Simulated scan of single mutants.
Amino acid sequence: MRPTRNCPWNKCAFCSLYKGEKFQIRKVEEIKGDIDAVKRIEELIKEGSDEVNKVPRRCLTMVFAWVRSGKRTVFLQDSNTPIMRTSQLVEVIEYLRETFPAIERVTSYARSKTIARKSLEDLSELKEAGLGRLHLGLESGDDDILKMVNKGVTAEEHIEAGQKALEAGFELSEYVMPDLGGRELFEEHALNTANVLNKINPDYIRMRPLSVRKGTKLYEKWEKKDFQLSSPHERLREIKIMIKNLEVSAKLCFDHRLNGWRDKSGNRLFKVDYEGYELPEEKDLLLSLVEEGLRVDESHHLDVRKLKTPSL
């Protein structure tokens, strides 16, 4: 569901999404209309009505898949829906849950800057209304790197946002981007990101390795050789530093295809699922996996520098 469209910031040097697109906060009644439309399509499916043939194929397929899955989860898109006025978003979430009582979890992406600016009272209202999980793009905990990629947020704001989200009762996922500092700043990236995560102590840490995408400022720097991507082994060494310095009770997840390292048998080095590895319980296991990956010849690992197009 898209209560908002596109991104209100849209300036990150590594991001190619939403370029040329204007950010929009949709009207509450329009969003409710979408919810009503989904409900009507569900009814047509259950009735076996011929009217269902008038529904656009893509919409029908999506609603059918969601209904078949049990209607348990909803993701609010696009990049920063909590930027809506709290009262309006509360109204949307409450209407959504009233219309579909089977929903167990509502999730949204959000910018740390937005969450940091929201009052704890506002965040608590959203949680009480039924927004249960937030995904924040931490990317890095190093201020120089955050400035370099024009993230529009500081490490301290990341910490404030994460702590406030948890205090309000949200389940929190923080996204980290290995190699965002490149070869030059890999150690600062690893150490300062671990430091920020330690102060937040989120529920999930999700690894999203950097790929430089055409049409971005970082791609331009990479083409001019002003930014150097790390090798697969160098990325693993960076991750090793980060893991060694993490002191959190969280799940560390490698649930993205760019986590393309291989073990000695040629299988994926890290398991690819949404629950990942428990920290601190599986910290030693993770470090041993990193060491195994470092013993595997680099030619067996995914190397974003050698892809035909770095735009993934």
Results as ranks from 00 to 15, higher is better:
246 L>A: 09
298 E>Q: 11
78 D>A: 06
115 I>S: 04
68 R>Y: 14
215 G>K: 14
187 E>M: 10
129 A>N: 03
184 E>W: 05
212 V>M: 11
116 A>N: 00
288 S>E: 14
185 L>D: 14
285 L>H: 12
86 T>N: 01
141 G>K: 09
78 D>Q: 08
263 D>E: 07
80 N>T: 08
123 L>T: 04
270 F>H: 01
20 G>Q: 08
95 Y>I: 06
288 S>Y: 05
172 L>K: 07
128 E>A: 11
221 K>T: 09
178 P>L: 03
231 S>H: 06
31 I>F: 13
169 G>I: 00
32 K>M: 13
299 S>N: 14
80 N>R: 09
97 R>H: 10
111 R>P: 00
16 S>F: 11
226 D>I: 09
285 L>E: 15
176 V>W: 01
56 P>M: 02
23 F>C: 12
196 V>T: 07
287 L>A: 05
227 F>P: 04
196 V>A: 15
168 A>F: 01
288 S>H: 01
5 R>I: 13
285 L>Y: 14
153 V>M: 04
109 Y>D: 07
191 L>F: 12
26 R>G: 03
152 G>L: 05
192 N>M: 07
47 E>Y: 12
162 G>L: 05
228 Q>R: 15
269 L>D: 05
219 Y>R: 13
166 L>M: 12
182 G>R: 00
110 A>L: 02
282 E>A: 13
92 V>Q: 01
262 R>W: 03
197 L>F: 06
76 L>W: 06
48 G>I: 10
158 H>G: 02
112 S>K: 03
78 D>I: 15
24 Q>M: 14
131 L>N: 02
181 G>R: 00
38 V>D: 01
